Simulated scan of single mutants.
Amino acid sequence: MNGPDWRAALDASGVLRRLARFDPRVAGTFPLGLAVPGSDIDVLCHAPDADAFAAALWAGCGDFDGFAMWQWQWQGLGQKADRPVIASFSVAGVPFEIFGEARPVREQDGWRHFSVEKRLLRLGGEDLREAVMNARRQGAKTEPAFAWVLGLKGDPYRAMLDLAELDDAGLLEVLKVKGSPGG
């Protein structure tokens, strides 16, 4: 699932070009090499105007297989209430999820999770990747899989955001202290 199929589907979709004005960034399990059957391509977007973003999604992606779009009331961790717009669909049999919210992508929880997971995998090496993949194969979502492998307590999404605040030296300490396979 981590090979060229997802990249070919991403290219075929034209999503990055179609949504270019919303700073689309691919995140999640595919670029991390942690996809399992059923994983989707996650694209995070900066959508300060939810209506304009929704219109762009309809215009650019509305003809894709299984297209669905919704907006929900959401309170990000430590953030004011927001109404992200989410769309899902498939291209070449690969599921996509597009997420747009008012915060710039680099500040979004999903991007911060992705960034720290990428750093942890770089620092923890193949042993950490395999341990996380084993948890993923057993049905765990990505953040809970990392939290379990690292022995983090409490809400795994909050715990991963806390790790995102650490520099690489701090992450190495977490890997070492938690006795993870990468430490």
Rank of each mutant, 00 (worst) to 15 (best):
M1H: 15
N2G: 08
G3Q: 12
D5Y: 10
A8G: 05
D11R: 15
D11H: 15
D11V: 14
A12N: 12
R17P: 06
R17C: 12
R18Y: 07
L19K: 07
A20L: 04
A20V: 08
R21A: 14
D23K: 13
V26L: 11
A27I: 15
F30Q: 02
P31M: 12
G33V: 07
G33D: 07
L34M: 09
A35M: 03
G38V: 11
G38Y: 11
S39D: 02
S39I: 05
I41H: 01
P48T: 01
P48Q: 03
D49F: 04
D49H: 00
F53Q: 06
F53N: 01
A55C: 05
A56N: 10
A59M: 04
G60T: 04
G62S: 09
G62T: 07
G66S: 11
G66M: 10
F67C: 06
F67T: 08
A68S: 14
W70N: 09
G78Q: 12
D82C: 10
R83E: 13
G93F: 03
I98W: 06
I98R: 11
F99W: 13
G100C: 07
E101W: 01
A102Q: 12
R103T: 03
P104I: 06
V105R: 01
Q108E: 11
H113F: 08
S115W: 14
S115P: 03
R119M: 07
R119G: 07
G125S: 03
E126R: 15
L128P: 07
R129M: 07
R129V: 06
E130D: 14
A131Y: 00
V132I: 13
M133D: 02
N134Q: 15
A135T: 03
R136W: 08
Q138A: 15
K141N: 13
P144Q: 10
A145R: 10
A147K: 03
W148H: 14
L150N: 00
D155M: 00
P156K: 01
Y157S: 05
R158W: 05
R158A: 08
R158N: 08
A159E: 00
L161P: 05
L161S: 02
D162P: 03
A164H: 06
G170A: 09
E173M: 14
V174R: 02
L175T: 00
V177T: 11
K178Q: 15
K178Y: 15
G179K: 03
S180T: 09
